[in-house]
């Protein structure tokens, strides 16, 4: 699978994402600067974490209006897979590719720790490497991860099985409604999640629970070792 990774001023998890993608799939993503207006022909677009534009206005708000995002929207509407992690999730909601919004954490504190995630929907190109209901470890590191949507939107998200991951075992770190940690769009080709699976792919990370996501999404290279 070929992938592109969008880099914004203030992205800072791009290196982790490049390493994870390359290590698992054997192919390095093509880096695309946010001022570009076209994307290479790829199967997967990745928007990494960080603090694009210093979180000015609202987290992800300015990045979501960057020139490259029009190309991302076009590709997403044609079925290209899009993964946004942390700030990438915030950008995807601000761009209208995913419903809802990520608000300031309920505690008002930046949280950086490991949480438990329930794989709520394993029937997607992102989550098929997990079992439905499986609980995995995953680190979070964010200030604005408190998922909110109005009642009607939330009901739609639930009834369309758009919840990919939920915080499990009382580890909701931010006050997200319905313990939502990650959601798909209706077509399930766009996934946004606050936790960082790219930081749990080799034993030196303290676990490999994030690998299955990248293996499902990007394909596993032959002979890949954990």
């Amino acid at each position: 699978m070929k992938s592109a990774l969008i880099v914004f001023p203030g992205s800072n998890r791009d290196s982790d994402m490049i390493k994870a993608s390359t290590k698992i799939s054997g192919n390095a993503p093509t880096l695309v600067w946010h001022k570009e207006t076209t994307l290479p022909d790829v199967d997967v677009i990745i928007i990494p974490g960080g603090f694009s534009y210093g979180d000015y206005l609202r987290s992800g708000a300015i990045a979501a209006r960057s020139p490259i995002m029009e190309a991302v929207k076009l590709a997403a509407n044609k079925g290209t897979k899009v993964l946004g992690v942390c700030n990438g999730f915030q950008i995807l909601t601000e761009a209208g590719l995913l419903p809802g919004v990520l608000m300031r954490n309920k505690s008002l504190k930046f949280v950086c720790k490991s949480v438990k995630l329930e794989v709520t929907n394993a029937d997607s190109d992102f989550t098929s490497g997990y079992d439905e209901g499986q609980v995995i470890n995953c680190p979070v590191a964010h200030h604005d991860g408190n998922f909110f949507a109005d009642e009607k939107t939330l009901a739609e998200i639930e009834s369309n099985n758009q919840v990919a991951f939920r915080y499990a075992n009382d580890t909701n770190p931010n006050g997200s409604l319905n313990n939502i940690a990650g959601i798909f769009n209706k077509q399930k080709n766009v996934l946004g999640m606050m936790p960082h699976p790219e930081n749990l792919i080799e034993k030196a990370h303290g676990g490999t629970d994030g690998r299955a996501l990248f293996e499902a999404l990007l394909g596993k290279q032959l002979g890949a070792k954990s």
Binding site: R65, V101, A149
Partner: peptide, 9 residues
Amino acid sequence: EKLLANTVI
């Protein structure tokens, strides 16, 4: 509508 407010919230 386009930037200053996020009309979801």
